[in-house]
């Protein structure tokens, strides 16, 4: 039995559910928006985690879930809760439900895509970069500072420089322009991350278990995810093959970070240097699948089914 967690209409979750249907796999849906009709009990005895999940009148022993696909959103922003006071009974129930389910999935011996603990490396990009480089990837020259003069020197040296958040918050990549220099003094109150721009082709690699899908992206935008906003035209995506060595590096990177499913952001330079910018632990793969037809959801479904 596979457990699908989140809001069923969310594209990645919907695609995996359809893929499980095609396989005839058994699954149950933990629809976050229907939290009021659910309950969960977790027990840990002598190092064994078990319990029961009740949904819409059905009971599921937790030990029967051999796979979990977790796309749960922050419960505080659910439409059913967003206008309720912090102390409301509904908020408490939803919080406890999600929290208990998450605590169990962290201890589950099944295939959990993904456990929360390994996902946290993505919380700090330079922290993750220090892990990434151990797997043989180049990482862009990076400066984090609160000193505007160091930024000016960095830009003079590298010519084209981008800036982005250090954490996962407000994570839109922007080019540092002449106009930005006039407000550079603002960084004095909070260190800011700058990187030498790397010329080359963006490649998103999705790894799931031992499988891998690579997608090349063509765009004039600094951050291709926002190509329509930044350059007025959407990015062009196409399936590409990676050589065996690079494929192995990607698979080892995901495995090393403890991620069953990952979205690895690469840039391959004309000289064939491979830079890795970050590893996304909760990739919204539907964007890539819908543009290329790559069967990513089928691979996720197969992994969850134990193959």
């Amino acid at each position: 039995m596979i457990l699908l967690c989140g809001i069923p209409s969310e594209p990645p979750l919907e695609l995996v559910r359809e893929a499980l249907d095609r396989r005839g796999a058994r699954y149950a849906s933990f629809n976050q928006r229907r939290f009021a009709s659910m309950s969960i009990e977790l027990e840990i005895v002598n190092g064994q985690a078990d319990g029961v999940l009740r949904m819409n009148g059905d009971s599921f022993p937790l030990r029967e879930f051999s796979g979990v696909f977790n796309r749960m959103m922050d419960y505080r922003f659910l439409p059913e809760l967003k206008d309720l006071p912090e102390s409301s009974a509904e908020r408490k129930l939803c919080r406890n439900l999600v929290d208990t389910l998450t605590k169990w999935s962290e201890l589950s011996e099944g295939r959990v895509v993904n456990k929360v603990a390994p996902m946290t490396s993505n919380f700090s990009k330079p922290f993750q970069a220090q892990l990434i480089r151990k797997y043989g990837f180049e990482v862009p020259k990076t400066l984090i500072t609160n000193d505007p003069e160091l930024v000016r020197e960095f830009r003079a040296k590298h010519k084209q420089v981008i800036y982005k958040s250090i954490s996962g918050v407000r994570s839109i990549v922007q080019t540092l322009t002449d106009a930005d220099l006039s407000r550079l003094e603002n960084i004095r109150w909070c260190p800011t991350q700058f990187q030498a721009f790397v010329e080359g082709t963006n490649v998103r690699v999705h790894t799931i278990g031992k499988q891998l899908f690579a997608t090349a992206i063509s765009s004039e935008a600094t951050d291709y995810r926002y190509a329509a906003r930044q350059k007025g035209a959407p990015a062009d995506l196409r399936e590409v093959d990676l050589d065996d060595e690079l494929s192995e590096m990607c698979l080892k990177l995901s495995e090393g970070l403890g991620l069953a499913f990952a979205g690895i952001d690469l840039k391959i330079t004309p000289e064939h240097h491979v830079y890795c910018f970050e590893v996304n632990p909760s990739p919204a793969f539907s964007y890539y699948q819908s543009n290329t037809g790559q069967p990513i959801a089928d691979a996720v479904a197969a992994y969850l089914a134990g193959e």
């Binding site: 700090s124 990009k125 922290f127 250090i166 954490s167 918050v169 909070c190 260190p191």
Partner: peptide, 17 residues
Amino acid sequence: DYASQEYSAFFMSWLSS
């Protein structure tokens, strides 16, 4: 909130180096 997340992420990297 943004600054808090940024500082925490920054310290995590610093302490790892």
